[in-house]
Design a protein around this nucleic acid. Structure first.
Lengths: 339, 339
DNA sequence: TTGAAAGCGCTAACAG
DNA sequence: CTGTTAGCGCTTTCAA
């Protein structure tokens, strides 16, 4: 049924206007509703649009209107099961409001982050949602300029000129430490993420202060750093378990690491939780499927995504002026079997 | 450091041209290299670009060049762990070639698929990669017109005017059936996906013919249909296990379903694999983490993504003329504990 | 090696 | 209620 014009591509507004005997302006307004159009005219126009199967060229519209109805979503690693859930929630909320999403994978690397940020800015996206890993929130703001709507997924403090959605990681971690302490497991280790990439340091800091709060001392050799992966966790835990004297419980900066720790424990012949208790962070779907079922801190991924999208929509409506929002989402301990 | 122009937004090519004392044309060519520019002129232009921190407006460029260096990726459900892996691979390959990805979530629904397809076409993406679920491959081609580069992720036959990347599901399923038959497990059940959505029917068909090949008869009541989710699998398997007489082994149309079947078996007090063997499909990361570890057919997600991206790149280079490609990727049985 | 002019397809300002 | 004109920021003829 599709009608094609002479040699060129899709039908354009000019073709519709000519065929309907009106000006392009009128076609535009019949479509957008931004100006009154008489019923008969509108019907004639819409009929012609239907006949030619016309769809407005959104690139041209974007150039003219100076807004593209698009949002960039920059994540560290889409293959990490936490992000797809966030991404899906963001996508769904945004799509319902007529926005389309660009997806960018940064690998948590500052260089890639900067490149993608510039790329997206050059594409005139209406906003950017990202979890800065290599860059600081302030860096990000500087990179995209003061006018770009920006929602950062963070964890903890920071008050740059950016809207933030953050999870109260410290609360869940404190809950976990208190839970372990109460069980008499007062020799705690921690397998954290990379030394400098969020949310590694902040979760470690939360762990330290929770341990202190609980009156526990944590020897430095029981704190390991690794990547946010299963293999990373396994390797780090292998080091931990190889030492003379090992912790009775290990908290991990995310579930993938924790699953790796379970691997290492199995290989080292340690029973979980009898010989060593393991607590994860995130509560990805897999956490409930491993053996033993993973006790972990629930990080509400879908809620984070939804909050990001809604915060972005509000910002898009309000324009770039302060004040900036800060949405804090709770985390809480989910007790299963591993601790 | 960022320089901003008078009242408006980002610096434009005109501003650079004026400041460098050349025409916009020359700036454009200094940037694109599509025409020779004298060394001195180029350096002057580039210096000015640097000074003003100019980045070309890609929306304007896209309108003019009639290509946007963007590709749409339409998946059924990003939260299904299979897709993030595909998406990441696609993203990485495409990004390396200077393409950016739009992400769309269709929920496997024909309406959403059509809407997103039109949206992406209206945005003049250079190509679309999708796994059609509600729509047929032919429908998709019709919806976007003959000129749109299109790579479909499919499973099995079909030769519409579309490039296809498909996995040889039948092979892996045949392997699984043969493996079970050899073990003497000749009473087979199947928990398939939705009746009409790919890859449900094709995997069921593959199962049927493999069973026939192996000389096994499969009673109709041992074939269940459900959604591609853990809950769906659990519900379907509960029905299966509630019947008088149940299969000795159950093949599933994907791993999520299989994990649901494990749930149901546990609830029904059935041991896996002793009372009932379970085989999944996809080999998502979780398959190796559940208890018992899931025997499943490996569906090479990252390879699928990479093949999609490379096929798209070739198509982008060659233009819309036939012939169309068909890349077939192997699947194979991965034996663990559940069967 | 460079520039002027035209125009991608749309919408907004202005005018009636 | 409708049309004319101008131009978003870029690239591409065409001409020098």
């Amino acid at each position: 049924m599709t009608k094609r014009r002479g040699g060129a591509g899709r039908p354009s507004i000019a073709g519709i206007a000519a065929a309907a005997g009106v000006s392009p302006t009128t076609v535009s307004h019949a479509l957008s509703g931004r100006r009154a159009v008489s019923k008969e005219t509108r019907e004639r126009v819409l009929a012609e649009i239907e006949r030619q199967n016309y769809r407005p060229n959104l690139v041209a519209r974007g150039l003219r209107r100076r807004q593209t109805q698009s949002v960039a979503l920059l994540v560290a690693d889409l293959a990490n099961p936490y992000y797809p859930v966030v991404a899906r929630a963001i996508h769904d909320v945004l799509a319902a409001e007529g926005y389309v999403s660009f997806l960018g994978n940064t690998d948590g690397d500052a260089g890639s982050e900067r490149t993608l940020l510039e790329e997206m800015a050059a594409r005139s996206v209406d906003g950017i949602i990202m979890q800065p890993m290599g860059m600081s929130v302030t860096d990000v703001r500087e990179a995209v300029g003061p006018a770009m709507p920006l929602v950062a997924i963070t964890n903890g403090a920071g008050d740059a000129s950016v809207d933030q959605v953050c999870t109260d990681d410290a609360h869940g971690i404190a809950e976990a430490v208190a839970y372990l302490a109460e069980k008499g497991l007062d020799e705690l280790g921690f397998v954290g993420g990379p030394r400098n990439a969020p949310p590694g340091p902040s979760r470690l800091a939360a762990f330290r202060s929770a341990a202190e709060e609980a009156g526990l001392t944590v020897p430095p050799q029981w704190i390991e750093h690794t990547s946010f992966t299963r293999d990373g966790g396994a390797t780090a835990a292998a080091r931990l378990f190889a030492r003379a004297g090992r912790p009775r419980a290990v908290l991990c900066a995310n579930d993938l690491i924790a699953i790796g720790v379970l691997d290492a424990a199995r290989r080292a012949g340690l029973r979980v939780p009898e010989d060593v208790a393991v607590v994860g962070f995130d509560d990805i779907e897999t956490a409930d499927l491993v053996t033993p079922r993973l006790t972990t801190v629930l990080n509400p991924a879908a809620a984070v995504g939804e909050a990001c999208a809604r915060t972005m929509l509000r910002r898009l409506e309000r324009g770039p002026r302060p004040p900036y929002e800060r949405v804090v989402l709770p985390t809480r301990l989910t007790v299963r079997q591993s601790a």
